[in-house]
């Protein structure tokens, strides 16, 4: 206790300066978290405020954990994350490598590359919903006009085509995040190791595989961490394009949670789902953070 008092006395000014920020974080972040965690143990319905005090113990969690639809949505979200992140990374890497080689108009290209990020996800959702429409959509019309298909392809109905369509929209919108971060890595990269490797007779592939890529890996893992949190919360695009359907074929965690929370007004149950699904985000953050540390160690940063 004495040590505590002494610590406070010796650091009174910095602690006083930090206090407002700590208070704001407590009020803005911690309190809502505690509140939402509590509601997971209640029968809280938005349209019946008094139900906030209707404590039902672990019933919401028991129902969520035994709900096949919830688990299906969770695994579909993991698959969606895996597909979207890997393809975004590959395409972003290709884009960044190509833009990096441009000697004229590179700034313009970088700006153009960022255009998809500037659209609201809702607009992106509508754009692809109409493009993939089976009767009036441009994709089907183009395929039929070119003689590549004789029938209307149900892009937003077929189990895998619908999954692919929402992944396509997500990837179209966010690949540039990877491209920009990887491009930043390429700009920061020292030229000496590459030139030394070339003098030693390395091929372009060997230079890329053993020098460029290891150097870029920390940037890629940072992008992966940011995007994994984003994609795990994917909602707008999916809601507009398929609404999680048909028959739950494209249901992701947040379309399910948002419907339960707002349309059904069952906030208690939705919060229980959200807390279970947060484990997914924590896992991916931990996973990519470990990878990031390993990559940095590999580069000799520590």
């Amino acid at each position: 206790m004495k040590r505590m008092r002494r610590y406070v006395r010796n650091n009174a000014v910095p602690l006083a300066l930090l206090a407002p920020a700590v208070m704001i974080i407590l009020v803005v972040v911690l309190l809502p978290l505690i509140f939402s965690f509590y509601t997971g143990f209640t029968n809280y319905r938005l349209i019946r405020p008094e139900s906030l005090w209707d404590f039902i113990g672990l019933r919401n969690y028991a129902r969520v954990l035994t709900d096949a639809d919830f688990w299906a949505a969770l695994w579909r979200t993991v698959l969606f994350l895996t597909v979207a992140l890997n393809l975004e990374m590959l395409l972003g890497l290709c884009l960044a490598l190509m833009v990096n080689r441009i000697t004229w108009g590179q700034r313009t290209m970088r700006t153009i590359m960022m255009f998809p990020m500037m659209f609201s996800p809702i607009l992106v959702g509508f754009q692809f919903k109409y493009m993939f429409n089976d009767t009036i959509g441009v994709v089907n019309n183009a395929l039929q006009s070119l003689g590549l298909s004789q029938k209307a392809i149900p892009f937003l109905v077929d189990r895998w085509l619908a999954f692919g369509s929402i992944a396509f929209a997500e990837i179209w919108m966010s690949t540039s995040i990877f491209a920009i971060l990887i491009l930043a890595g390429l700009f920061a990269m020292p030229r000496d190791p590459i030139e030394a490797a070339r003098v030693d007779g390395c091929t372009s592939w060997q230079v890329f595989r053993h020098i460029t890529l290891p150097f870029l890996m920390p940037f890629i893992y940072i992008a992966m961490t940011i995007r994994s949190l984003d994609v795990a919360r994917a909602y707008d695009i999916v809601d507009v394009m398929t609404g999680g359907g048909p028959a739950g074929r494209t249901e992701l965690l947040w379309t399910l949670i948002a419907r339960t929370a707002y349309d059904d007004a069952r906030m208690g149950r939705a919060n229980a789902m959200a807390y279970v699904s947060i484990l997914l985000s924590i896992f991916f953050t931990w996973f990519f953070f470990r990878k990031l540390m390993a990559a940095r160690q590999h580069l000799g940063a520590f």
């Binding site: 429409n133 089976d134 009767t135 009036i136 029938k151 209307a152 392809i153 149900p154 892009f155 937003l156 109905v157 619908a162 398929t242 609404g243 359907g245 048909p246 028959a247």
Partner: peptide, 12 residues
């Protein structure tokens, strides 16, 4: 009906 019908709402 169109194959995309299960995904249609009013605008479609």
């Amino acid at each position: 009906v169109p194959a995309g019908t299960p995904n249609y709402v009013w605008d479609d």
